[in-house]
Design a protein around this nucleic acid. Structure first.
Lengths: 155, 155
DNA sequence: GAGTATCCTGACAAAGCTTGTCGACTTCTT
DNA sequence: AAGAAGTCGACAAGCTTTGTCAGGATACTC
C-alpha cells in the first residue's frame, strides 16, 4: 500500500482534532499544527466532511470538529476515503477485481490478497483514540462530539 | 504497498521460469505465457539478470533461466528490485527516512511502520518454490540451476 | 564466415496521476 | 453591512508509469 500525500495530511488532521478538546479548530490552525499547506487542506477537509467524519461551522469562531468519537474512526476509513481499494494490484480488490490474464498468475494473486488482508486488519484495528492515547496528549471528550448530520449544503 | 505493472510482470516471469523444467525459455515464449508485451519484458528481464536472479544465453537456443533455486528467491526480492522501499510513506523507510514535520505525527509513523513490517514479513516469507508448489505444476530441478555469475557484459 | 536467432541498451512519447494554487462564492456572527 | 470563516471547481506543473522502437552485440549453424 502506498499512502498519498493527501491521505497523510488527512490522517494528521484527524489526529490533531482527536487531540484537541471540544472547541472547533480553524482550518488555518489545523494547517499550522500539521504542517500542511492550507490550500491543500481546503480540499481535504470538505472531503471528510462529506463523508461524515468531520463537522464544520462557518463564520467567525467557526472551524472543524470531529463528528464521531475518535474510537469510531479507524485509519482504514480515512485511507480508503482518499485512496480507494487497499489491494496492491487491481486483480486483488474485493469488488470488481480485474481478471488475471495469466493462467497461473492467480497463485500470485493469492499473495497479493494476503498483503491486502494484512493491511486491512492492521489499519482497521487502529482507531484515532488509540493514536491519540499513544501520542500521550489529552483528547476529545466524547460528550462534545455527538454525531450530527452535516450533509453537503445542496441538500 | 502498491505493485507496479513492471513488478507484476517480473513476478509472473519468475513464476513461469520456476514452473519450467531446466531448459532456457525465450523471451518471446515468456512473454506469451505471461501475457506481457514483449517490448516491456525486454526491459524487465535484463534488470533481473543484472541483479543475479536470472541468467541469460544468447543466440539460437538461447533464452532465460533462473540463476538460483526458486526456494532462494523471495517475492520481497523481486518487489524491492523494481519498487525500492516497501514503506507506505517516505518517513517510514528503514534507511534515510524523511523527517516528520509534525510534532505528533510520529504516532502515525509507528502505524505505517507496522504496515511496512507486515508487508515485509509476508513477502519475505514467500519464495517462488512455494508459489510453484501452490500452482500445482512441476518446477525447476535444483540440479539444473546452480548459480553462475553472469555479470553485465561490460565486465 | 555469412546468415540468422536471440538478447541488450538507451532514448523516448503518450498517458495518467499527484500536488499544490488560485479565485470567486456561500454562510455565519456581530 | 462587514468581516471571518468554510466551499467549490478549474487548472498548471511536475512526476511516474507505461509501452515502443531502432540499432547494436553475441552466439550458434551451415
Amino acid at each position: 500500500m502506498w499512502v498519498s500525500r493527501r491521505t497523510d495530511y488527512a490522517t494528521r488532521a484527524i489526529l490533531t482534532l482527536s487531540l484537541e478538546g471540544g472547541g472547533p479548530l480553524k482550518l488555518e490552525e489545523i494547517a499550522r499544527r500539521t504542517a500542511v499547506p492550507q490550500s491543500v487542506l481546503e480540499q481535504v477537509m470538505p472531503t471528510m466532511r462529506t463523508a461524515g467524519v468531520v463537522r464544520s461551522e462557518r463564520g467567525p469562531a467557526g472551524g472543524y470538529r470531529l463528528n464521531k468519537d475518535p474510537s469510531e474512526i479507524t485509519l482504514e476509513r480515512i485511507v480508503r476515503l482518499f485512496q480507494g481499494p487497499l489491494a496492491p494490484i487491481s486483480c486483488a480488490t474485493r469488488h470488481n477485481p480485474e481478471p488475471c490474464p495469466m493462467m497461473v498468475g492467480c497463485t500470485l494473486r493469492d499473495v497479493w490478497e494476503e498483503v491486502r488482508d494484512a493491511t486491512i486488519s492492521l489499519l482497521g484495528g487502529v482507531t484515532f483514540a488509540d493514536l491519540a492515547k499513544r501520542a500521550g496528549g489529552p483528547w476529545l471528550d466524547p460528550a462534545l462530539i455527538a454525531p450530527v448530520p452535516n450533509p453537503s449544503p445542496t441538500t
